[in-house]
Amino acid sequence: MTISGSHTTVELGSMLDDLRGVSWPARHSVRGAATGTHRSRITGMSPEFTEYRPYRQGDDPRRLDWKLLARTDRAYLRITSDRATLGTTILMDASASMAYPEATSAKWAVARRIAVGLAAVAHAAGDPVGVIVPSTHGIRARPPRTRRGVVGEIAQLLAAIEPEGSVELGPTLALTHRTPRLVLISDFLGDLDGMIRATRDRIVAGAEVHAVHILAREELDPPTAPILAKDPEHPNVLRPLVDETRAEYLAIFSTWRDGLAKSWRDARASYSQVITDETASQAIRRIVRPPAQMATAR
């Protein structure tokens, strides 16, 4: 796959090459009508045989297995599985907390790479993919599309965004109501409760939600020099991160992360932590890996 744009090609080319052949199966049967790679909830006329069912009055006689009828003199319907596409929307958090560390904005860079990588993987499977980035200047979006070049467009859109301000992702979720697969890429330092509430509603409605938690190494292991920690989205929050408070900070942050993971899992979403010093391709492989037990078809 190729992506137009010189700088995005250099930056993302090696990652996309690394992701070649990676598949992103749906966690459960999809309800899509278009033919795709994912197992569909709707059984159809595909060659993949699954089972026989006795003919009942009203069934489509074209689905009768005539050979079986000839052999056994019994009327059975041939049931086969079908494949559908899974539209994917990636919701990006472009708030000021994503532009950390200040020198490199590594969190946003990793988030961008993961978004483009996931888009590429989904697009390679023929799934429509799009991106939504709410910001203080409005919402920038690419609706889910399967056309060629959509990954490049997503990459270019994300490359032009500088994280700033404070933006709530929860209200933006409403714009993704038609998308069966939703990826939230954020540090979840905003309105977490609102986001989980909105996401839970989507999950109940049948969507597949992936929560990708971006963490900076410097947040997990801050420098030992005493600093007055300043929240970029809430300037009135000034806390001294010194020797006496460091251990407690690490404990509180760890507890919060554990709680966050539990909240997402309780909401039946897929939760993944990505640290900025982890390669994007590695993280993407982890995100797209199917869980140990697939959900049964509904």
Partner: peptide, 15 residues
């Protein structure tokens, strides 16, 4: 101490 940006500042004890 010198002020520095830390998005997770809220988790630092409020001393």
């Amino acid at each position: 101490p010198r002020a520095a940006i830390l998005p997770t500042a809220r988790f630092v004890p409020d001393l």
